[in-house]
Simulated scan of single mutants.
Amino acid sequence: MRFLLVVPPLAGHVAPLRGVAAVLSSRGHSVAWCGPEPLLSTLVSGRVFPAGGSAPFSLSLRPPGLRGFAALKFLWESYLVPLADAMVPGVSSAVAAFEPDVVVVDQQAMAGALVAARCGRPWATSASTSTELADPLGTLPKIASWVSDLQAGLRARHGVLLGDLRFSPHLVLAFTTRALAGECRLAVPVSYVGPALPAASGEWSLVDDRPLVVVTLGTSNDSAGSRFLAESVDALAGMPGVQGLVVDPTGSLVSESVLLARRIPQVAVFSRASVVVCHGGHNTVCEALSAGVPLVVAPIRDDQSMLAQQVVAASAGVRLRFDRAKAADIRKAIEAAPGYAPGAEKIRKSFAAAGGAQEAADHLEALG
């Protein structure tokens, strides 16, 4: 069988499908990727079909101070919709050249849904984050209607009669579990396959045997992120009973008592951590909970607030205000987090039982 994976050039959205692609390839299937170049080739290996032209589609162009509806408005009007329009010709060419049996479409690469529907190809949604499944705009009818109108414009421009482009009527692969995300109330076939995480790689030497507390905001390195990391360093410096590790991508922080690193082998380090403080990125949350590590979540924007809510609802961690948290607030949250270890362990068990990349591959094979 032949599988075409249509994705945006975003590491967090590509990451779960890399594991699925590896499983499909190991089973003898042909797998190819489709998305904006040259960015996509820095994130994946194997055959890549370009789609999106030369436009610099990157969320890094978003003004860093945007929050709430302003951030959502930018995401849809300045990224998702233009990306979909730009990718359609390339995806169409890829489908014609590769002739896939199944098209796998990330939720933020709606061109894949448009082309698959137009060509009558079976297609599956890759839900790299669970927040859309929770219908976050369900209580915000005006915003939901605005998003619906944007999608209607996309469908009209590309001659497609289809429902919500974010949800395949054939199969939605949710890289989470019900234990964390809760039940999906949408009228689509959802398979909860759990996170498809990379194998632990890389080494990290701990200085001593104290409990390890890791602070990371992923790739967020604007002024607000720098402020939060600096406050975290101050918080950990006042906690001699733990070994603090702060991931500082800029290398601008200085501390005599807290470990600092520009990057870490996250899966390997989290397996040795007692608490993880993060921004609520889906991959980071899942990597921590896959190790049964309780979380302190300080969401910044987009789906992170919903993920923080899911973590709290699952009793797997605590939540902080990213813009307002001071060292004392962060220290208090870190001290409270170990009490949520039972909830984190429950999520870990649900992830282990879900099947991950192997289970996702099984569903895709059945779809073809």
Rank of each mutant, 00 (worst) to 15 (best):
V23F: 01
A199C: 12
S290Q: 04
M1W: 12
A187F: 00
G53T: 08
A11K: 04
G52H: 02
I330C: 08
R157I: 05
A313W: 07
L186E: 00
L245Y: 13
A333L: 14
L217N: 03
H29G: 12
A51G: 05
L162A: 15
P82L: 09
R301G: 00
A273W: 15
H29M: 06
L161V: 15
R27T: 10
T125K: 07
P198Y: 02
S45H: 01
S255I: 00
F228S: 00
P50S: 04
E256W: 12
V88N: 06
S30H: 13
Y340P: 13
D234G: 03
R321Q: 14
G159A: 09
V267M: 13
V293W: 03
V115P: 00
A70F: 11
Q151M: 11
D302H: 13
P249M: 06
S191W: 05
L180A: 02
V193T: 09
A181Q: 06
Q310N: 01
Y79P: 14
R166H: 13
L10K: 09
D234T: 14
F69N: 14
F98A: 02
A361V: 02
L245A: 12
S191F: 12
P249V: 14
G90Y: 05
A337K: 04
A314H: 00
G241I: 04
L307A: 06
D234Y: 03
A291E: 15
L206Y: 07
R62F: 10
A117D: 08
Q309S: 14
L180Y: 01
V14C: 07
D248K: 13
V95M: 04
L173N: 01
A308Q: 03
L133W: 04
H158Q: 09
V31I: 10
T177M: 04
L114T: 05
H29K: 08
A152R: 15
P169K: 07
E256N: 15
A291L: 10
I334P: 10
L217H: 03
D329T: 11
V269H: 11
Q309G: 14
A352N: 15
V102D: 11
S30G: 10
G28S: 11
V102R: 04
Q108R: 06
S350W: 13
G159F: 07
G218R: 14
S223T: 11
E287M: 03
L17V: 07
A325T: 04
K346H: 15
C286N: 12
V215D: 00
P50A: 07
L206V: 13
F167H: 03
D362H: 12
V95K: 01
D164T: 00
D164E: 07
E359D: 11
V188T: 00
F3Q: 09
P195V: 08
G28H: 10
G138C: 09
D303K: 02
K142W: 15
A237I: 13
K326I: 02
V247G: 12
L39F: 12
A181D: 00
A230W: 01
L245M: 13
Q266M: 14
I264Q: 08
V160E: 05
V31C: 05
A230I: 01
V172G: 01
S201I: 04
T176V: 00
L295T: 01
L320M: 01
V95P: 02
L307S: 01
L171D: 03
A174P: 06
A235C: 09
A124H: 03
S220P: 02
F322V: 02
T131P: 04
L150A: 09
V246C: 09
